[in-house]
Design a protein around this nucleic acid. Structure first.
Lengths: 242, 242
DNA sequence: CGGGTGTTTGAAAGGCATCAAAAAGCGTGG
DNA sequence: CCACGCTTTTTGATGCCTTTCAAACACCCG
């Protein structure tokens, strides 16, 4: 996305981290030791001093905030390759914890920003990451503000599929590493409603279930219709399967 | 698109825009002519090529996205001093239009990013702006996903007050430049529900109305309680008024 | 095989939307 | 200045969707 005219005629002292030229944001974490968390364990909590940036190497994390009375809003799920804690100021504004067994690497936050700031070709990459985060949050706004329970669940399934890098025009099996409660707290619904909408989609033949964690998305076109997507992960082409 | 290594020990050729050293992001717009829009006029539309960034000099804008069937979600309201179009990639993902008579200045987007990228002290400012945007969107997620109609309306009024730079612990009169429909589309409710919740707050004595556009927030403590704020624009101190 | 957690299903209540109409503003023109 | 028509806001009555409360069911692991 950006001319990587690195190094040309310049020593870039700060860019070489640990003696290695960073080609991408991810590569900054290369030298760090991997940490592991079991399901339910936290990476950090809302209000903690934000002194590290993380990259998720393996597994799935949930990121959430809680209201004083205990209600919980899941802001998003993180997968392999996702960065965590980039767009914070002094303190983390949310909690991050493992959904499945997780492997991640951390990097001191100040130094992260220093290195990126001193490395011309990394700067636009960071900006892009944060913009993506903003966009994701705004998609969520539409989902929560305007969509019905059925639309939310369908949108969610398609989002997960898209995240897995799948073409959402052809049937695919996806895995939900989290439980119904996590889905509910992400979608602004209750567990019962999520469950009901899933069985409704199942009875209509749009999806089928292998246990509660594996979902086969079958009739993609209908799913997109039900999702009332304004998004269209891929443009509205005319080559649909069914 | 990206010319790195100027800086170090040079007179900042690119930083000096129109012969003036930019001290802040806002000052970049200094030389641009002001444009005016009347209520309802658009700055740009969802899907337009994103080739400018804007600064709002005066008035109020609404930023929204629409679903294929016409439902509208207002993502936010912009006030004097706010930037617009910073966190976009190729195309604007939302529409921006005037709520009240508006004055704004535009700046070519590529050049904006180029200048910022080449000016060390501007870069963190831009990052901070975008992070704020992300945070705002996530607050919205909580509001829409977890809060009741009453909580949403109370949160909204407090948010507007906070935006006006007011201390939300002491009573204050705020102005709502937009109508109930805009509020509704921002809060994920209908006009009728917003109206009802406003009168409910009025009858409880938490607020009073001067016409439909001016609201006096009276019992701030109760308002915060009703808002079920996890946020606390100002920290939970013990000096409340009533 | 039994306890525990997570999921599904059912019945009833409640909150918000919808439909409808009255009331209040607001600009225009007589 | 008041009358008129239009738009916006408010209020009312009804219905639906989602929540709540409750229980059955499925699954996992000791």
């Amino acid at each position: 996305m950006h001319s990587p005219e690195l190094l040309t005629n310049d020593p870039f002292p700060a860019t070489a981290f640990h003696g290695v030229q960073a080609a991408s944001l991810e590569s900054l974490f290369g030298g760090q030791v991997a940490e592991r968390l079991m399901p339910g364990e936290g990476v950090f909590w809302e209000g903690d001093a934000a002194d590290h940036v993380f990259i998720l190497v393996e597994g799935c994390l949930r990121v959430y905030r809680t209201l004083p009375d205990g209600r919980r809003a899941i802001l998003g799920f993180l997968y392999r390759g996702d960065l965590l804690g980039v767009s914070c100021r002094g303190r983390y504004l949310f909690t991050a914890e493992a959904v499945s067994p997780v492997k991640l690497r951390r990097f001191p936050r100040r130094r992260f920003h220093q290195v990126v700031d001193e490395t011309p070709h990394l700067r636009p990459l960071l900006l892009a990451k944060i913009c993506d985060e903003t966009t994701a949050a705004q998609d969520q706004t539409i989902l929560l503000g305007q969509k019905s329970a059925e639309e939310r669940v369908a949108s969610f399934l398609l989002m997960i599929a898209r995240r897995s890098g799948a073409d959402t025009r052809t049937p695919i099996e996806i895995e939900l590493p989290f439980g119904r409660l996590d889905m509910a707290d992400y979608l602004g619904l209750t567990v019962e409603t999520v469950s009901r909408e899933m069985t409704k989609l199942k009875r209509s033949g749009l999806i089928s279930l292998n246990g509660s964690q594996k979902v086969v998305l079958r009739r993609m076109r209908r799913l997109h219709e039900v999702a009332a997507a304004d998004d269209d992960g891929e443009e509205s082409s005319t080559l649909w399967d069914n």
